[in-house]
C-alpha cells in the first residue's frame, strides 16, 4: 500500500510517500497511523496528535475510522487550508 503525506505531516515524517505492508490487524486509518508512528522518530512526531490529522483513501476524504482493506493509496495530512 502506498502512503502519501502532505504539508507539515510530510515534513515531520521526512518523506513525501512510502510503500508499506501493514500487519493484518491494522484495519482502519487510525490503526494504520498508530502503526506508522512506530517506523521512525519523524513518524512519531507527525502522528503525535491524531486529532490534527485528516486522511484520504484512494484519493477520497474519509474519517480516521474508515477501513483500509483493499486500499491502494492512503494519504495523511493536516486540515486543509486552501482558497
Amino acid at each position: 500500500m502506498k502512503i502519501v503525506y502532505f504539508a507539515w505531516v510530510r515534513e515531520r515524517v521526512g518523506l513525501a510517500e512510502e510503500e508499506v505492508t501493514p500487519p493484518a490487524g491494522v484495519a482502519d486509518v487510525a490503526a494504520l497511523v498508530e502503526w506508522l508512528a512506530t517506523r521512525s522518530d519523524g513518524h512519531r512526531a507527525a502522528f503525535a496528535d491524531p486529532a490534527r490529522l485528516r486522511a484520504a483513501v484512494d484519493q477520497a476524504f474519509v474519517p480516521l475510522d474508515a477501513p483500509i482493506a483493499g486500499a491502494r493509496e492512503v494519504a495523511i495530512f493536516p486540515p486543509v487550508t486552501g482558497g
Binding site: 504539508a7 507539515w8 484520504a56 476524504f61 495530512f77 493536516p78 486543509v80 487550508t81 486552501g82 482558497g83
Partner: peptide
C-alpha cells in the same frame, strides 16, 4: 472549497516559514 479540497498554505513572515 476551503474545507473540502486538499490544499495547504505555508506563509513566510520575516524569513520564517510556517504552515
Amino acid at each position: 472549497l476551503k474545507t473540502d479540497a486538499p490544499f495547504w498554505k505555508r506563509e513566510t513572515v520575516a524569513g520564517a516559514a510556517r504552515w
